[in-house]
Amino acid sequence: MDAERAGMVDGVIRERRTTKVLADAPLPVVDARGTVEELVATAGWAPFHRVASRMHTESGALTSIVPWRFHLLDAPACRALRQVLLERGDRSKIPRMLAAATAMVQATWLPNPPRGPVTGLFEATEENMEHLAAAGAAVQNLLLAATARGVPNYWSSGGVLREPEAFGWMGIPAGQILLGAVFLFPADTGDAEVNPGSHRDRRGAPSDWSRWVELDFTR
């Protein structure tokens, strides 16, 4: 890779930042379907080590072997979901982000069927860890692709959007687990509140979280 190309890639990675846009009233609807489909196509080049279980690939409309799924909501769907949440008394920040979003991506990952009783969300196996890591790489690709196009974005843990009822509204199979709800916002946010991430400048220098290994075979 030449220096110019490396500089472009490095620049996008460093430019990526959390941008949370909160609107009390819905912003004008923007048709971003074409852009979102570009982002998803790019995100799909994430590495994955193991293929998804047949329980995920042989049922439903999405049959890819990759261990993640992206469920896409355009701006009208975001506004409709916002309204339902408000009517149900949701006072979290989710409705305010849905009021501002041009789109939202429900990014899920596909755990293997458990071999026995499970405590927690999924069985803690090596294969499931690899599925989860691959899905995380796909989400990061999505964020970087959005950043490269000047699309403000926010990776949310999902809150109410990970509940079974929300999965039902969106037609997401119960066997999938939400990794994050990725909100995509317009460049023009009007009078909406815009909040940056709180940890961006606290990660420290690379020497705080990386080290060269010195092998010791006497241990």
Rank of each mutant, 00 (worst) to 15 (best):
D2V: 03
M8Q: 15
E15M: 13
R16V: 10
T18K: 10
A23K: 11
D24S: 14
D24N: 12
P26V: 02
L27H: 03
L27M: 07
A32Q: 02
G34T: 14
V40P: 02
P47M: 04
P47H: 02
S53M: 01
H56M: 09
T57R: 14
T57S: 14
T57G: 07
E58V: 08
A61P: 13
L62P: 00
P67M: 08
R69L: 05
F70A: 15
F70W: 07
H71Y: 09
H71R: 11
P76A: 09
A77N: 00
R79M: 05
Q83K: 13
L85M: 15
E87G: 07
K93C: 10
M104G: 03
V105W: 05
L110G: 01
P111F: 08
P111T: 07
V118T: 06
T119S: 12
L121C: 00
F122L: 14
F122G: 00
E126I: 06
E127F: 00
E130G: 05
A133S: 03
G136S: 12
G136K: 11
Q140H: 04
L143W: 01
A146D: 06
T147F: 07
G158H: 12
P164S: 12
P164L: 08
E165S: 04
A166S: 13
W169Y: 11
G175P: 04
G175S: 13
G175C: 04
I177Q: 07
L179S: 07
L184P: 04
F185Q: 07
P186A: 08
A187F: 01
T189S: 09
T189L: 10
E193Y: 02
V194H: 13
N195H: 10
G204Y: 05
G204A: 00
A205L: 11
P206H: 02
P206Q: 10
P206R: 03
D208P: 01
D208W: 03
V213T: 05
